[in-house]
Structure formats: structure tokens, C-alpha cells
């Protein structure tokens, strides 16, 4: 394949983001379900809605906020563009546009995954079944990632796919860490209590981070250590820092390998964020406010996305003078 169409680059970027988002949303719903079982009551589900800044959209459903309605909203609701079904549907639509580029196996798996999701009924999100459903979604997303890694031709599109995946992963991790901010400490009395520890434990496990965390923290589990690990640990692949570092390297390599003059703004922004993540300490984060920090990282990632869009995805208008033929 010769040159990558701008439209295809954008579709690859978003398909990767959508798959990553679905996986992380499943992780977050799963961990939240675990907390509910710990006796925090239906109140907890509001935090998920807040986490994704969906208060208004949820209110539009006109439903009372409880486990059943929130789960429906985030898993099955086709009217909610942020639900897992809707996210995978969009990923599949992108994949459909990308079928000339992606492997048949990538398409087939995504196609079958979506068919499965479409067939889900209310029963699938009932309490006893939720964990199994989340595990299924996680696995299907990971299967997608694995098939992609194993079959996608390493053209320039590969880098856009990676960028999408990594940026979404960083964004989602800040949200997962924010679950803690919203609900882990209902009152200062809980700090260090058995309940507190079990909740931190659950956050780590939902990010598949428990064992990695234990390897460098053989004992103890404090909010700062867990947050620090998930934000800053450069060797844990789901940490914000690892994802941003990888994204920075990916974009640099993309521009170098394919001789692309555009995209400098996005590189600068990623490098800035990457360096900040390397230097920052958890103590400073706590002093500034964890939630505020997460918000700030999210807005930086939005700025990176927008810079990528301007550089690579936006179509020059027909006959515009700015468009320079390359040959």
C-alpha cells in the first residue's frame, strides 16, 4: 500500500481508541461492582457517571440512578454513544471503512464480537452475571489487540493505531484512578482501615496491576503508593506515564520513518506531558489535588488529539493553495 489516506489514518486512530475505551470501561464497571458489594450502596454508581462527565446525558434518560440503570446506560444503551455496545459499533464501523487495510482476521473477530454484544439482554448485566460479562468484553478487546499486533501490516497506519490506543489508555487510567478520588474515602476515618485496603486492592486488580504493584511494593498498600504506581510507573504498560512515553516515541518514529513534515505541535505537546510525568512526584499531585491533576492530564491528551487531527486527519479543502502536491 502506498500512501495512507488521511481518512484511513483517522479511522485507525479512533478504532484503536474505541477498543481501548471499551476494555477500560469494562474494567471500571467491574471494579465498581466489586465496591458495591462491599456495602457502599447504590450511591457508588453515580461516581461512574461523574467519571465520564455524563451527568446531563444520563439525566436525559429520565431514569432513577441505580446499579441497573447505570449499567444499562454504559453497557447496552445504544442511544448512549459512550456505552460499550455503541463504542464497539463505532469501532466496527471504522473497521468497515478500514477493511482494505486491516487483516481479515481483525475484521472477523470484531464482527463476531459486535454480533455477540448486539444479542445481549438485560440479564447479562444482572448482578450475578456482570463480572462474567466484563471478563468477556475485556478478553474480546484483548483478542483484538493481539490479532492486530500479530497481523497488521506495519505501514504508517500502524503508528496511528498505536497512538490511538496509547492516548486512550492514558486517558482511561486517569479515570480509573479517579474512581478512587470519588469514592474510596467517604470519610477520613476509613484511611488505612480494612475497607480502604480492599478497595485499593480492587483498583489495582481492575487495572491488572496488583502483581506488578506487589513486585515493587512487597508490603503495604497506601493511596499514594497505588496512585503513584498507576500514574508514574514507567514499566507498567497501563500506567499513564508508560502510555505517554510510548505514544511520544511512536509519533516521533512515524514522522521520521515516513518523512512527514507535519505533526510538530503534537510531538511538542506529548514531549511536554512525558517530561512532566517523569519529573512529577505523587506528593506534589496530592498537594495539588489528585482529581485536578487527572483533569489536567485529560485536557492535555485532548490537546494532543486535536493537534494530531490538524496535522494528519483534516482534509485540505478542494483546490486549497495550502495543499502541496508531493509528486
Amino acid at each position: 500500500m502506498a500512501d495512507l489516506l488521511a481518512r484511513h489514518a483517522e479511522a485507525l486512530f479512533w478504532m484503536a481508541r474505541q477498543m481501548e475505551r471499551a476494555e477500560n470501561l469494562a474494567r471500571i464497571l467491574d471494579v465498581n461492582e466489586t465496591f458495591s458489594r462491599d456495602g457502599q450502596g447504590s450511591q457508588n454508581w453515580e461516581t461512574i457517571v461523574k467519571l465520564y462527565a455524563d451527568e446531563e446525558r444520563f439525566a436525559e434518560t429520565g431514569r432513577a440512578l441505580n446499579a441497573e440503570t447505570v449499567l444499562h446506560f454504559y453497557v447496552l444503551d445504544t442511544e448512549n454513544p459512550g456505552s460499550i455496545v455503541a463504542t464497539i459499533r463505532m469501532a466496527r464501523e471504522n473497521a468497515r471503512a478500514l477493511r482494505p487495510l486491516i487483516s481479515t482476521e481483525m475484521w472477523t473477530q470484531l464482527n463476531m464480537f459486535y454480533s455477540e454484544l448486539r444479542g445481549l439482554t438485560k440479564n447479562a448485566i444482572a448482578e450475578p452475571n456482570l463480572n462474567r460479562l466484563c471478563a468477556f468484553i475485556k478478553e474480546a478487546c484483548q483478542t483484538h489487540t493481539g490479532i492486530t499486533e500479530g497481523t497488521y501490516y506495519r505501514d504508517s497506519g500502524w503508528y496511528f493505531y498505536q497512538l490511538g490506543k496509547l492516548i486512550e489508555r492514558a486517558d482511561q487510567m486517569t479515570r480509573l484512578v479517579d474512581v478512587k478520588y470519588h469514592l474510596l474515602l467517604p470519610s477520613p476515618d476509613y484511611v488505612g482501615s480494612p475497607l480502604d485496603v480492599s478497595q485499593w486492592n480492587a483498583v489495582l486488580r481492575s487495572a491488572a496491576a496488583y502483581h506488578a504493584f506487589r513486585r515493587i511494593n512487597p508490603s503495604g498498600m497506601s493511596p499514594t503508593r497505588v496512585s503513584s504506581f498507576l500514574l508514574f510507573n514507567g514499566d507498567f504498560p497501563r500506567s499513564v506515564s508508560a502510555a505517554v512515553a510510548d505514544a511520544t516515541a511512536t509519533l516521533t518514529k512515524l514522522r521520521f520513518r515516513f518523512g512527514l513534515a507535519v505533526g510538530e505541535e503534537a510531538v511538542k505537546r506529548l514531549q511536554f506531558l512525558d517530561q512532566w510525568l517523569t519529573r512529577e512526584t505523587i506528593e506534589d499531585v496530592v498537594a495539588r489535588g489528585l482529581h485536578e491533576t487527572n483533569d489536567w492530564i485529560q485536557s492535555e491528551l485532548i490537546a494532543v488529539t486535536s493537534a494530531l487531527h490538524d496535522a494528519f486527519f483534516s482534509q485540505p479543502p478542494d483546490g486549497a493553495e495550502s495543499a502541496t502536491p508531493t509528486a
Binding site: A2, D3, A6, A9, V262, F312, P325, T326
Partner: peptide, 10 residues
């Protein structure tokens, strides 16, 4: 031309 990530390509 096609609109590609690197500009216009014939």
C-alpha cells in the same frame, strides 16, 4: 491526487 497523511499523492 489523493489526500494522504503526507499531503497530496497522485
Amino acid at each position: 491526487y489523493m489526500k494522504t497523511i503526507g499531503g497530496l499523492s497522485p
